[in-house]
Nucleic acid binder design. Structure first.
Lengths: 134, 134
DNA sequence: AATAAACAAGACATATCTGGTCTTCTAGGA
DNA sequence: TCCTAGAAGACCAGATATGTCTTGTTTATT
């Protein structure tokens, strides 16, 4: 359980690769996909999600492609993962204040809250710079 | 992401309820299912998994039912969760030594190892006694 | 021994999620 | 005006999640 999906795995591989490239170099999606061994059309979806929240910047047309939206030390693994997998929510109770009729009496609740915070902490502390090994 | 399935949620609810009952009281599956609001047939499957690894003990025939396999303070939340959801494995690399061709060069690997250990630590520290609020 | 109460086990059904593909559209450069 | 490259969304197959149903097997009771 608690497994990252392929989408999340591909997302990390793709953006970490981008972080290894020179900061001003616009990378072709096809090159990224080939480099990290991910189906190009699938990676396209992922990078579109990145683009919407500014993790990467996209350029269309001839000579287009992608570059990081911020310096790699300013992008955390947490952001990358949550961008494609959604917020980290170990169980339904933790989702929000809402819709857990048991949350007031549920002793499990605080345990999941703790799990959630620990995971987020760990992932937030790791940047693309760390992962790219620069 | 990282979400517990309903099966896991039901499993916890069911066995925690059992922990609130007197230690020597054999509980009917139908009573447990009703108490924690879970489909009985589904809960049956879950308790069969518990039974196989000794988390609960089952008695068949008239007057049959379930009791905890060990005192509630000797059963951790980790055991319960892993019994029905499988081992905690945040990404595929962490599975084992095997089948991650990238693991040697992959900087993400140790991060997931860390996540895995933190989650396991937290869940291992919580017992059914804690959760039952005894 | 017959019967009824309970769990065991596995086949079956359905809905949702994953992992991808395909087509069409839009933007920019040559 | 072409051609290139990303944007966006429809589409689809397979896996997984979430149950249900049927048919045992075991046990206590009468």
């Amino acid at each position: 359980m608690m497994e990252l999906t392929r989408k999340g795995e591909y997302a990390i591989r793709g953006i970490v690769f981008l972080a290894t490239q020179p900061a001003d170099q616009i990378c072709l999606l096809s090159d990224i996909a080939a480099a990290v061994d991910v189906p190009q059309t699938f990676l396209a979806k992922i990078f579109q999600q990145f683009s919407k929240i500014g993790l990467v910047r996209s350029y269309r047309g001839t000579g287009g492609g992608f570059i990081l939206g911020r310096p790699p030390e300013k992008i955390s693994l947490l952001e990358v993962v949550e961008a494609v997998e959604g917020p980290i929510v170990p169980n339904r109770c933790v989702t929000g204040e809402r819709d857990c009729s048991r949350s007031d009496t549920c002793n499990v609740h605080p345990v999941w809250m703790d799990v959630k915070e620990q995971i987020r902490d760990i992932l937030a502390r790791v940047s693309l710079k760390d992962l790219a090994g620069i």
